[in-house]
Write a protein that binds this DNA or RNA. Sequence first.
DNA 1: CTAAAAGCTCACATGGATGTCAGAGGCAAG
DNA 2: CTTGCCTCTGACATCCATGTGAGCTTTTAG
Lengths: 125, 125
Amino acid sequence: MRIGELASRTGASVRSLRYYEEQGLLASTRSARGQRHYTDDGVERVTLIQRLYTAGLSSRTIAEVLPCVDAPSEDNSDAALERMAQERDRLSAHIADLIRTRDALDGLMAANRAHRAKLRASPAC
Amino acid sequence: MRIGELASRTGASVRSLRYYEEQGLLASTRSARGQRHYTDDGVERVTLIQRLYTAGLSSRTIAEVLPCVDAPSEDNSDAALERMAQERDRLSAHIADLIRTRDALDGLMAANRAHRAKLRASPAC
DNA sequence: CTAAAAGCTCACATGGATGTCAGAGGCAAG
DNA sequence: CTTGCCTCTGACATCCATGTGAGCTTTTAG
C-alpha cells in the first residue's frame, strides 16, 4: 500500500509517517519512481509506534527499543530489552501518579458537590 | 515566604512559578518593593498545579478548573465542575490506554525472553 | 489525453512549558 | 559600605512532533 492508505488505516498523518521513517522507526520500500510502499505489517508497526509515543517515549527512545521487536534475541537487543524494562517501570510510575491525580480530582469534585448541597439546604437560596 | 523558598519546597523552578502566576493559576502578594510573597498554602497549590500538568491539562484548562477549588459552590464553578468531570474522564481513558501500552511492552519483553531461551537451548550457541 | 488526486522533498511555522541571559534593584551579614 | 545572594522584568532560545505551503512528479480516473 502507499503512504496515504497507511495513514488512513492508522490515523497517523502522512507527515507523521514520513517523520517516523526519518527517525528510523518505520521502513518502506520505494517504487521505481520513488514512492513509498508498505506491507500490511506496517499498520501494526505504526500502531505500536503511536502507542509508545502516547506512553511518553521520545522518537530516540523508541528507536532504541524497536530493534528488540525487529530482531528478537540478537545481541544488540540486550540493550533494547533493558531499555524496555526501564521504560516499563517509568510508565508504571506514571500510571500510578495519574491515578493519584484522578483521585485528587474526584476528591475535589465530591467536596464541591457536598458544599453545594449544603448551601441548597440552608438559608437564602 | 519568597519565591525561591516556594520553588525549593515544591520542586518547581522559579521560572515556572512566575509563569503560573502569569497564567492566572497562582496568586502572590507583593512587598512594597515588588517582591512576591506566598503563604504556606502556596505549597499545596503549586503541588496541585503540577499534578494537573502531569495529567496532561494545559494551563488554560487548569485555569478553567481551579475556580472550583477557590470558590466552591459559586455560580461560576458550574462550568468548572463540568470541565473537571470532563477532564477526569479524559484522564481515565488515558490511564486505560497507558495500561494497554504497558501490557504491550510486557508482551514484547516476554516474547523476546522466550525467543532467547529457545536459542540458548538449541544447536549452535 | 487531460485533469484530479496523491506523492516527493525542502523548509519554515507552531505551541507550550521551561531554560537562560541581561540589566537593575533589594536585602542581610561582615 | 561592600559583597553576595535573591528577586524583578523582558526577551530570546529550546525541544519535538506536527502542520503547512511551494514547486514538481507520478498515478489514476474519466
